[in-house]
Design a protein around this nucleic acid. Structure first.
Lengths: 215, 215
DNA sequence: ACAAAAGTGTTAACTTTACACCCATGT
DNA sequence: ACATGGGTGTAAAGTTAACACTTTTGT
């Protein structure tokens, strides 16, 4: 009673004011010409986490990205060839990581606005739907933020991500007040130069964060 | 590259002011004499959900219990005999269900206070630890409550569960006010008779609940 | 009549929301 | 000097927390 097990990677980013997801273009049957999530079959001698991290490393070499496990898909017909159980992972990466990755873009992968997805292979439309839902939920925990911003960030930057993920406007003063009152962040003392307008202060997450829930 | 997949069932209840979990007594090697979660190997022709529900039906015949998927365990050595990937489910059942189930208790299963667990087989100590954590998190969603109380309940009853799960006292008036303001529940018109003290009003969850987050 | 548990209302502390002006930089 | 985006304070509305007495039943 053994089954094939695969990992499914939902890698999201915020891009031109939209939530986007990374997809591969499928070049062979079945679903030739469709797009799909990065996937990888789990071997007997690796954990699912190891498999997932290897899969990530192939798409984004030399970037430490943290994903969280979401759901398991086990419908009998989710793969037309044979029965495959899928374990889905969800993560959010920062604009900086995106730009770096698009440089080595020989492997025909693209970011797609989640409201304008192309034809999707297998049950990946469903997996992505669940992934987006989980992304919003997950985003209410500090761990997601510290993964997204392992180093410095500005408050307007952070606010921007919030506004897109939750799809609503937030007052700048209130956002700032709330975030500072949480006590999670500290000023680095530096500011961001180079763009138009007044430069923003840089912050970092404190090392000793305990708080789990945010919004 | 196929792997054995099993479901792991974390079934919690609130019992004498404590959170308890259902465990089986293991009668064969390995881990003979230890206790373990109900588990079941997933077959090629069933989904994981189907497997989980069959497993439940064996322990609690004729009771509709809803579980939610939690985590996947894939460490290579979690089972000493061979590699088994475990998918864990978490649910909370009501005192009424407990009493019914303990009647057909020929299969040597018991409820254990989670702070006083016996010797546990495999990695089940870890699985239960994660399960308890998830239980608390899950309990902040209305779906858990409607599953726990598909029919009538009293507010003191509900408050009692809250106090145990989150391990803190709540003011009766504030709890009531908050819950009623949510607009999730309605009086049935009936009251609970028979016990000492003033009888409590019975409530039920409305059909059209949309709210997800509670506390 | 008394013990036991349920039900109720008011005030203070805190949190959230709404809102407008000044500041630092690049052009 | 002006355009652009960042930073700041205050007051009103809403929410949460703290608190004690009355009501309904069983014995």
């Amino acid at each position: 009673m053994k089954n094939t097990v695969e990992t499914l990677i939902n890698l999201f980013t915020v891009h031109e004011g939209k939530i986007s997801i990374l997809l591969f273009h499928k070049k062979d049957d079945p679903y030739k010409g469709y797009w799909m999530l990065p996937t990888s079959i789990v071997r007997n001698n690796e954990t699912i986490e190891e498999n997932m991290m290897n899969c990530l490393e192939r798409s984004f070499p030399h970037h430490t990205i943290t994903l969280t496990q979401n759901e398991v898909y086990s419908d009998l017909d989710r793969n037309p060839d044979n029965r495959v159980i899928g374990v889905s992972y969800v993560g959010l990466v920062d604009a900086k990581t995106i730009e770096l990755s698009s440089q080595d873009g020989r492997m025909e992968m693209e970011w797609f606005d989640i409201t304008m997805l192309p034809k999707l292979a297998y049950d990946h439309a469903r997996v992505i739907g669940d992934g987006v839902h989980y992304l919003r939920k997950k985003f209410k925990e500090t761990s997601t933020l510290t993964e997204l911003y392992p180093s410095d960030f500005t408050l307007p930057e952070l606010q921007h991500i919030y506004e897109i993920i939750f799809n609503k406007q937030i007052d700048r003063r209130n956002f700032r007040k709330k975030f500072i009152r949480f006590g999670l962040i500290e000023e680095t003392g530096d500011i961001v130069k180079g763009s138009t307008g007044r430069p923003a202060k840089l912050y970092r997450f404190k090392d000793d964060i305990e708080k789990e829930e945010l919004f």
